[in-house]
């Protein structure tokens, strides 16, 4: 039985990895299909909150890929990104989120083969993990109403004894 697809969000730099992924497709390299791509102008655009927001919203994994250090289209965007992404990767464990759910890496526009390897390896990594834990998305009032419904006690004195 085939394993169900997982939701993986990929944030790719327009100038390199996005082209690399495109080239991999054009070259008809076989790739897993779990990844959904968001195109960024540069990995320097990457707000670390994107990662946490995606994971809390139900993504099983997040992959960021940009230009190799020294090759940034804007000279230094990926250097800033490297610091921020490394920080957020090390931050995830305190929330109880498996840090393997998030990776960042560098793939140039010419590295279609490497893109295929990266996306395959990352997808396997995510499939080896259970689905991402979800928080209850009900609000306080819904929670309160549910608790009251399940409560064996009468809600208040005035309704005691009435069915």
């Amino acid at each position: 039985m085939p394993i169900l697809e997982r939701r993986i969000i990929g944030f790719l730099c327009n100038w390199c990895s996005y082209g690399g992924a495109d080239a991999a497709g054009v070259s008809r390299f076989t790739q897993p299909t779990d990844l959904r791509v968001v195109r960024l102008p540069c990995t320097g655009r990457m707000n670390p909150i994107f990662v946490v927001k995606a994971l809390l919203a139900g993504a099983d994994g997040v992959l960021v890929s940009g230009c190799h250090p020294k090759d940034c289209h804007y000279s230094e965007g990926n250097y800033y990104a490297r610091r921020r992404l490394e920080v957020i990767k090390r931050f995830l464990p305190v929330l109880g989120i498996e840090p393997l759910r998030f990776e960042y890496t560098w793939v140039s526009a010419a590295e279609a083969k490497r893109w295929q390897e990266v996306v395959t390896a990352f997808t396997e990594q995510i499939h080896a993990l259970p689905p991402v834990p979800r928080l209850p998305d009900d609000t306080g009032i819904e929670r309160l109403l549910r608790e009251l419904e399940n409560s064996p006690l009468p809600i208040c004195g005035c309704h005691a004894g009435h069915e």
Binding site: P48, I49, K53, V87, L135, P136
Partner: peptide, 24 residues
Amino acid sequence: HWLSELDSVTDKLLFQVIHATHLA
């Protein structure tokens, strides 16, 4: 619109993560 106006655990936890990242 990073955070909704709902009182959901997701929004509240995300706010704490935002606070922590802004303080990195």
